[in-house]
């Protein structure tokens, strides 16, 4: 699945990013590397999401989120 279809409150693992190189590298520099866990905290219609990536929140539009393949991670209780 892609990130724009994520549900809020769930954790996902990044599988691959399919974006133009500049944007791809920008995301990687923010820590979105393969295998990184991201927590989706808020979602909106149109696929814009708020995610927590390595401790920092970002709002990401559909043009980006729909190009990020993720898989859901089983939530481990604290």
């Amino acid at each position: 699945m892609t990130l724009d279809k994520a549900e809020s409150g769930k954790t996902y693992e990044v599988e691959s990013v399919d974006l133009p190189i500049g944007l791809h590298i920008r995301l990687e520099a923010l820590g979105m590397t393969k295998g990184t866990d991201i927590d989706v905290t808020e979602t909106k219609e149109h696929g814009t999401v708020i995610m927590k990536l390595r401790g920092t929140r970002f709002a990401v539009g559909k043009g980006i989120s729909s190009h990020i393949s993720v898989k859901e991670v089983a939530v481990h209780e604290h």
């Binding site: 944007l23 995301l27 920092t56 929140r57 970002f58 709002a59 990401v60 539009g61 043009g63 980006i64």
Partner: peptide, 11 residues
């Protein structure tokens, strides 16, 4: 076509 490329940190 419009591509929503919003990417902004929420401090």
């Amino acid at each position: 076509p419009y591509e929503n490329d919003l990417l902004i940190e929420l401090p």
